[in-house]
């Protein structure tokens, strides 16, 4: 049987992945951009929490809102400086994707410089961040395994309320569905797109800050996670925020626990191949059922397999 601590870690990792994937999906739905800069958004969240914990003191959980706002602001910056001008020129999705890769490289270099700065000015070892020790224990398991799912559920609830019950949320859904029609009705798509980058970036920040409690970080931690994030988003169907959250939980859990179970069966040599699991999940989804989890008719499926009558 798997140890409880491994399951707890898997839960908190999968929850943070769900939040990051939700950000990718929101940005893709609104601006048709596969945001590769999500990788460094997540890394920035790691470093903001790290720097604040070591310089200002306190607990990593205190700085979750700071990570949300800071990375959301980065998202706004990317939209205003890069994606907005490109969208106004009707750039192709490939150009949009490539330009976010460029942004990612620039941010990556800034993170490396920031890490150097922390090392030289504050004498911190900023090349390997371990914040796990700052987590407290709750009911015998790390608190992040309890708090992270709560944050995921409340994010789903908040986003649902925002999109379904507020006027701005309705405008956002209208713009996603048909930007031209929405702009005829007096909705400014630029503001909607800006908001999507703010929220999407913020979710990446929140996810990254939570992930810093379950995995160790270095300046390329986001880049090593970005494929998992895209896999979650694609498995979720790419056109549904709830689907991407579900995809994130699924990918995160199967990545973390699946490899442990497999190593028990075939031996420890398989452990380093962990990143292959999300890749296979993504490839299978794309080739077999591109609509993803959100495209499944759940009531009918449950009826068919006999769960509900």
């Amino acid at each position: 049987m798997l140890p409880v601590i491994a399951i707890a870690k898997a839960v908190s990792y999968a929850s943070s992945l769900a939040l990051m994937a939700a950000g990718i999906t929101l940005i893709y739905m609104c601006t048709r951009t596969f945001n590769f800069a999500h990788a460094t958004f997540v890394t920035w969240a790691f470093y903001i929490v790290f720097a604040l914990v070591f310089i200002a003191g306190g607990n990593p959980y205190m700085y979750l809102p700071v990570a949300f706002i800071f990375v959301g602001f980065l998202g706004v910056l990317v939209y205003l400086l890069v994606i907005g001008p490109l969208l106004r020129r009707n750039a192709s999705p490939i150009t949009l994707m490539m330009s976010t890769l460029g942004v990612d490289l620039v941010f990556l270099s800034f993170i490396q410089m920031f890490a150097d700065y922390l090392t030289r000015t504050y004498k911190l070892y900023a090349r390997r961040i371990v914040l796990e020790t700052y987590d407290f224990s709750l009911l015998g398991i790390p608190a992040s395994a309890v708090i992270s799912p709560i944050i995921v559920v409340s994010t789903i609830a908040a986003l649902h309320l925002f999109l379904a019950r507020t006027k701005f949320g309705t405008a956002m859904r209208a713009t996603i569905e048909n930007p031209n029609l929405a702009s005829i009705l007096g909705i400014n798509p630029n503001i909607i797109y800006l908001a999507s980058w703010l929220i999407g970036g913020g979710l990446a920040g929140l996810g990254g800050a939570l992930a810093s409690l379950s995995i160790a970080g270095d300046p390329t931690v986001g880049n090593s996670m970005v494929v998992s994030m895209f896999a979650s988003s694609i498995v979720g169907g790419l056109y549904s925020i709830n689907g991407s959250m579900l995809g994130g939980l699924l990918i995160g859990m199967s990545e973390y626990l699946g490899i442990l179970i497999l190593s028990g069966i075939v031996g420890g040599w398989i452990l380093p191949y962990r990143p292959v699991i999300p890749l296979i999940a993504m490839a299978v989804t794309l080739l077999v059922y591109p609509k993803g989890l959100a495209g499944i008719n759940w009531p009918r499926l449950l009826y068919r397999i006999g769960v509900i009558k």
């Binding site: 020129r89 330009s99 460029g102 490289l105 620039v106 270099s109 490396q112």
Partner: peptide, 25 residues
């Protein structure tokens, strides 16, 4: 500068990609 200038290479390539995409596709 308070950092290792080796990272400027990344900044340069990244900026070049973005600027070309916007100003001279």
């Amino acid at each position: 500068v308070p950092f290792d200038p080796v990272w400027l290479e990344y900044t340069f390539v990244g900026l070049a990609i973005v600027l070309i995409a916007i100003f001279r596709p």
